[in-house]
Simulated scan of single mutants.
Amino acid sequence: MAVGARSGHDDPEERPGRSPEQPSDAGGTAPAGGGDDDAPEGSGTGQKKQRSFWKELPLLIGIALLLALLIKTFLVQAFSIPSDSMMNTLQRGDRVLVDKLTPWFGSEPERGEVVVFHDPGGWLEGEPTPEPNILQEFLSFIGLMPSAEEKDLIKRTIAVAGDTVECKKGGPVKVNGKALEEDYLYPGSSACDDQPFGPFKVPEDRIWVMGDNRQNSQDSRYHMEDVNRGFVPVDEVVGRAVVVAWPVNRWSTLPVPATYDQPGLNAAAAAAIAPPALGLAAAVPLVLWRRRRLSV
């Protein structure tokens, strides 16, 4: 008898499995030799037809685009450097990865960090829109890079809310009276000879930013007459640039320079905390003395 697909009218007694004379197992276990596992190959019994790759491809593309959108929105995004204002730290054409996750948890820019921010008010007015290449167009399409029409800038955070910042011609930038040793400046650049400023205090929810290539950077110093007086609102900050990802020979991290860790730089913050702390320290003995007196 040829082996093949059976007709739907086969005699039940001829089917594999328990014969009419065999009692069923008390535990419900299928007897040896029975079941669909022993069906001849090609019978189709118990087999699932595999879905075609071309039918699954749209689903895979949809999932990939959704993941790219979530990554771009909440985690990390690539930005292309369009100018020389951050040389030599960043060069024109570099691609940097920007951490967008920590701001969602309330983190704000800190001194020394390289940050990307939206144009806070006319900083890029009149600037030509850069022409994207094929790679940037593709990354923009999937959401991992901003489109060429977006107005974003990248600078270094010099001072944050509560800091007093200044720079006199021929001198260094000072934050809370401490001179910054800016070894990241472009060779030959001065700290601020082209545009001295200050001293002034950084308002709440604002930061003061400057480029590393000082004589080729239209940074906070050049926008002190605008609506934000040169300061960048914290809510306009996209995130911190953490890695130069492209080209490969330029791969590097973007750590905070050591000069921002020098003692005394946080003097303004300490001064703000000191009065409440001293008040609390003075209040504790007074309360204890009062309770002791009432208990006598």
Results as ranks from 00 to 15, higher is better:
Ala269Asp: 12
Pro255Arg: 01
Asn213Ile: 00
Gln262Pro: 00
Ala191Phe: 08
Gly230Trp: 11
Pro233Asn: 01
Gln195Lys: 15
Thr253Trp: 13
Gln262Trp: 01
Val227Trp: 04
Ala270Tyr: 15
Pro233Gly: 03
Leu278Met: 14
Asp261Val: 02
Ala245Ile: 14
Val232Met: 06
Glu204Thr: 15
Ala241Val: 00
Asp212Gln: 02
Gln195Ala: 12
Cys192Met: 05
Ala281His: 12
Val232Ala: 04
Arg250Trp: 06
Asp235Arg: 10
Arg229Pro: 05
Ala282Tyr: 11
Gly264Pro: 09
Gly279Ile: 13
Pro187Arg: 04
Leu278Tyr: 13
Val242Phe: 06
Val256Ala: 00
Leu278Gln: 08
Leu288Asp: 08
Ala271Ser: 13
Gly279Asn: 10
Asn249Arg: 10
Gly230Asn: 01
Arg206Ala: 11
Ser189Gly: 01
Ala191Glu: 08
Asp226Ile: 08
Ala179Pro: 06
Leu180Gln: 02
Gln215Trp: 01
Pro203His: 07
Ala283His: 10
Asp212Phe: 06
Leu185Pro: 03
Trp246Arg: 07
Arg221Val: 03
Ala267Leu: 14
Cys192Thr: 07
Arg240Leu: 04
Asp212Arg: 02
Glu236His: 15
Pro285Ala: 13
Ala283Arg: 12
Ile207Ala: 03
Ala258Ser: 12
Val238His: 04
Gly177Lys: 03
Val243Ser: 01
Pro285Tyr: 12
Val234Thr: 11
Gly198Ser: 07
Ala274Val: 13
Asn216Val: 00
Pro203Ser: 09
Val244Ile: 13
Glu225Leu: 08
Arg221His: 05
Met224Gly: 06
Val248Trp: 12
His223Met: 05
Leu288Val: 15
Pro203Phe: 05
Pro199Gly: 09
Trp208Arg: 03
Asp261Leu: 07
Asn213Gln: 00
Val238Lys: 10
Asn228Leu: 02
Tyr186Ser: 07
Lys201Arg: 14
Arg229Lys: 14
Val232Trp: 04
Thr253Gly: 11
Phe200Asp: 11
Leu254Thr: 04
Arg221Asp: 04
Gly188Ser: 10
Ala283Pro: 08
Arg291Phe: 11
Asn213Asp: 00
Ala245Lys: 02
Glu225His: 10
Val175Gln: 05
Ala269Ser: 13
Gln218Phe: 12
Val209Glu: 05
Asn228Met: 02
Asn216Ile: 00
Ile207Trp: 01
Ala282Pro: 02
Val244His: 01
Pro199Tyr: 14
Ala191Tyr: 08
Pro275Met: 13
Ala241Met: 02
Ala191Asp: 12
Ala274Trp: 11
Asn266Leu: 11
Pro199Ser: 07
Pro203Arg: 10
Gln218Ala: 12
Val256Asn: 00
Ala269Cys: 07
Arg250Met: 02
Val256Ser: 01
Trp246Met: 03
Tyr260Thr: 08
Met210Cys: 03
Ala268Trp: 13
Pro196Ser: 08
Asp235Asn: 10
Asp183Glu: 10
Asn266Val: 09
